[in-house]
Every structure is written in C-alpha cells, then in structure tokens.
C-alpha cells in the first residue's frame, strides 16, 4: 500500500542518479545530474514536438504475425507489447507542428529494440504514401537495432519497400526530415533513416550500420573514441545538424516553415 505513494524514480543509465519520473519528463528526459540524453518512448517523442491534441494515429491496429514460425517470436511479441505498453516499434500519424500540418512517426526502442518487421515497414510505407497523396511533409524519429530477424527475409524486404515509398514522397516534391536518436543502427540506418532531405541527430546518439563488436572482430582494430556517435556522423558529413531537445521543436518548425513559405515580407 505504501508503494502507491512512493515517488517513481528512474535510474540514469550514464551516471546512475535516481531521478523522479516527473522531473525527468519535465526536463525532456535529459538527466538533470549529468546531461545525458535518455531514451524516450514514441508517444513521449511525439508529445515533445507535436502541438497539443493534434496527433492522430494511423494504422495503429496493424499487428505482427509469426509467418515463418520463428521459435519464440509469438512470446517475444506478447512480452514486448506488455512491457512497452505500445502496439509496435513505430507509431505513425498526422499532426501539427507550430500549426503546420505534417505526417509524423516515432520509433520506440522499448518494443523489441525498435526492430523493423512487416508492421513497421507497412505502417511507414502507408504513412509516406498518405503524405505523398496529401502533400504533407514527414518528420520522423528513428531508433532501431535494425531489421527484425524473427521475420526472416520479410524484414529485410521492408528496407526496400519503405525506401521506395520515401522516393515516391520525395518525387512528388515533399519534405522529409529525420531525427536520428540513440541508437539508430543496421537496416534502419541503411534505409529510411539516411534518406531525409534534412537529417538531424540528437547529441551523442549512436548511429551506424555495422555493430561495434562485429567491426572489432572483423578488423581486429580498436574503435576510435566517439565512433558512430552523432558528432562523428556530423563530422563525416552524414547529418546536417546536431540539435538539443529544448530547441528541437522550434528547429523543426523553422525547417517546415522555410519549405512552405514563398517569400518573407
């Protein structure tokens, strides 16, 4: 009974500080002790940038099947849904950012490490097709361990499917902004994460294709400090800017605005 009144706390993964959930949320999930950017759920992400009450979820009813009868996948899916409280590793919809209509998506690492299977691929493809049809820009947050191996070849093919939809959206003259968050790796990096007209990264986010351990084992070389971090990605020319959370919404709004504004008076 006492527990009900106990303040909920979260442990910072970097400095191990115990921070109350409320104060962490108020601080945009940045640790007040060490300034580390902690991972955020999909809905928290969308809350942070969408105008209040404007988010309207699309295709939330699509759910995964264990089509190739992969051992343990059914249990994993049930477990992921229960633990994360969300329906899949990406949440899609339409919303407004500073009163500008757009299509939005946010991946969530709490659901099977944000891995991409058929549902993630299908929700994103439908979102880009909808945005292309309605002439909406797409703003998306990526976080993923890569393709979802439990769906075998179907997960790999989602990379091509989503990239095709991104192309269709782009060819129709629409803007796509990606925000790379910690961690964005594997098949998501090698598809829609890297296809934004404008690519923003969060400070210190891990962004790469191959896993650090695989690279070390293959090459026998020690990885340089800061390898595959946002600052490394920026330095090598694969992101446009690193943007801090407190100014992310205003930065996105400014980007959207300049793409819709004819001439400023």
């Amino acid at each position: 009974m006492f527990n009900l009144f106990k303040k909920k706390t979260v442990t910072c993964k970097k400095c191990s500080a115990e921070v109350s959930e409320k104060s962490l949320k108020d601080n945009l999930y940045i640790c007040p002790e060490c300034n580390a950017y902690l991972r955020m759920g999909a809905y928290e992400r969308l809350d942070m940038v969408c105008d209040k009450g404007t988010f309207c979820e699309t295709d939330g009813d699509l759910t995964s099947l264990n089509h190739i009868s992969f051992p343990g996948y059914d249990d994993k899916l049930a477990d992921a849904a229960e633990k994360s409280g969300i329906s899949e590793a990406v949440i899609c919809g339409t919303a407004e950012i500073d009163s500008m209509p757009c299509a939005v998506f946010a991946m969530d690492s709490n659901f099977m490490m944000g891995s991409m299977g058929s549902v993630v691929g299908e929700r994103l493809t439908r979102l880009f097709e909808l945005a292309a049809e309605q002439g909406l820009p797409v703003v998306g947050f990526t976080t993923s361990g890569g393709a979802r191996m439990q769906e075998g070849i179907f997960s790999l093919m989602q990379m091509a499917k989503v990239s095709g939809a991104v192309k269709k959206h782009s060819d129709a003259g629409n803007l796509y902004v990606t925000v790379l968050t910690d961690p964005t790796t594997g098949g998501v990096t090698a598809s829609f994460a890297m296809l934004g007209d404008i690519i923003i990264a969060e400070p210190n986010a891990l962004v790469g294709f191959a896993g650090a351990r695989v690279i070390e084992q293959t090459t026998g070389k020690a990885l340089p400090a800061g390898f595959q971090r946002a600052e490394f990605i920026l330095e090598h020319g694969f992101a446009d800017a690193i943007v801090e959370r407190p100014v992310l919404k205003s930065t996105l709004a400014n980007i959207l605005k300049i793409h819709t504004c004819k001439a400023r008076r």
């Binding site: 294709f209 090459t219 390898f227 595959q228 490394f232």
Partner: peptide
Amino acid sequence: GAYPGIDAEERGQGEAIAENLYEMMT
C-alpha cells in the same frame, strides 16, 4: 554482407546502401 569496417562506417555504409535502395526503385 556489406564490409564491417571503421573506414566503411566513416564513409557512410548505411547511407550508401540506403541510396541504392532509393534510386533503384525508380
């Protein structure tokens, strides 16, 4: 698979693959 190397990551292995998927589609 794609080469997992430090230099390959520095020069955008993920971006290179993504670009091919994107351009090949059309």
